[in-house]
Simulated assay, not measured.
Amino acid sequence: MSTHLIPLAGVIGQPVAQSKSPRLHGYWLRKYGLLGHYIPMPVSSGDLSHVLSTLPRMGFVGVNVTIPHKEAVLEIADVISDRAALIGSANTLTFQADGKLHADNTDGFGFISNLKQTAANWSAASGPALVLGGGGAARAVVSALLSDRAPEVMIANRTRARADALKAHFGAKIKVIEWTQAAQHLGEVATLVNTTSLGMTGKEDLKLSLDNLGRETLVTDIVYTPLRTKLLAAAEERGCQTVDGLGMLLHQAVPGFERWFGKRPDVDEALRNALLV
């Protein structure tokens, strides 16, 4: 009789009912014929530490982390990756064989991988970027752009203090611009990124004039509901190359799946279609 346990993984947060991660990881497990399960688990902040100490004893090899625990898990983790430390949050936890809890952030990896797979010859090094937003997603995107050699990253956030905090964290290549003046800088950038929830289904629209946007600028939105936001539609009408946000979700899941289930999965059109059903 085999003593090998079936590896378990999941996503923890509150809420988690809306998460696409169970469908995503389930698709890969079936595609590659791997033993394993991926389970959504609502976890309150008060239970976080207890849950993370208990899961490995139940056969869990790792979990994804979503709101509101992405910062708090860094206080609990034994080992923190450089990128998780730089971003200040984690979305991927691995319960190591030595008993230690490893925390990583793959959001920036997912963001860059999505652009490089979708946009021919795109590189952050091709010119300045403008990032709309100053939250956790913006922090991951800014870190990834700098790692991919962006010469300058402009940040515009409705609350100026949050943009200033990113400038203080990431340093000289960050330029903070006023939210109301973002449209005036569009002609200067090679990459435009919306990391806010503006334009998402059920949220306010992103009110940004694209009159100064050049055709050579790549425009991407990390929102994927709807898949084609008004920002992307307007940028396409101006002749810009656009990239939707679904690919970031798919690519950020790759490192965790590989660590937990031992197979590096592919991100392809069949996977996108499966998640859009």
Rank of each mutant, 00 (worst) to 15 (best):
S2T: 13
P7S: 03
A9H: 10
I12G: 01
Q14Y: 08
P15N: 01
V16F: 03
P22Q: 08
P22S: 04
P22G: 06
R23L: 15
H25Y: 14
H25M: 07
G26V: 02
L29N: 05
L29R: 02
R30E: 14
K31Y: 00
Y32L: 08
L34E: 03
G36H: 04
Y38K: 08
S45I: 04
V51N: 05
L52Y: 10
L55S: 00
F60K: 03
F60D: 07
F60L: 08
V63F: 11
T66H: 06
T66V: 11
H69L: 04
K70P: 03
K70W: 02
A72K: 14
V73K: 11
L74F: 10
I76E: 15
D78I: 03
V79C: 09
A85Y: 09
I87F: 05
G88W: 00
F95T: 02
F95L: 07
K100L: 14
K100H: 12
L101A: 08
A103T: 02
N105M: 06
D107C: 02
F109P: 02
G110W: 06
F111T: 04
I112A: 09
I112C: 00
L115V: 01
Q117D: 12
T118S: 10
A119P: 02
A119Q: 01
A120P: 12
S123Q: 10
S123T: 13
S123D: 06
G127W: 03
P128R: 10
L130Y: 01
A138Q: 03
V142C: 15
S143L: 04
A150E: 05
P151E: 10
I155T: 10
N157T: 05
R158V: 03
T159L: 07
R162G: 05
A163N: 10
D164A: 10
L166M: 14
K167V: 11
A168Q: 15
F170V: 08
G171V: 11
A172I: 13
A172L: 12
K173L: 14
I174G: 09
I174S: 07
V176W: 09
V176P: 14
T180I: 09
Q181V: 08
A183S: 15
H185D: 05
L186A: 02
L186F: 03
L186I: 05
E188M: 13
T191F: 14
L192E: 00
T195E: 06
G199M: 13
T201G: 00
G202H: 09
G202Q: 08
D205S: 15
K207S: 14
S209T: 04
L210K: 07
L210D: 10
D211S: 15
L213F: 13
L213N: 13
L213Q: 14
L213A: 13
G214L: 12
R215G: 11
L218C: 07
L218N: 10
T225W: 00
T229L: 11
K230H: 14
K230A: 15
R238D: 02
R238Q: 14
D244L: 00
L250Q: 13
P255W: 09
F257H: 01
E258H: 11
E258N: 10
F261E: 08
K263W: 12
R264Q: 11
D266Q: 15
E269L: 11
L275Y: 00
L276G: 04
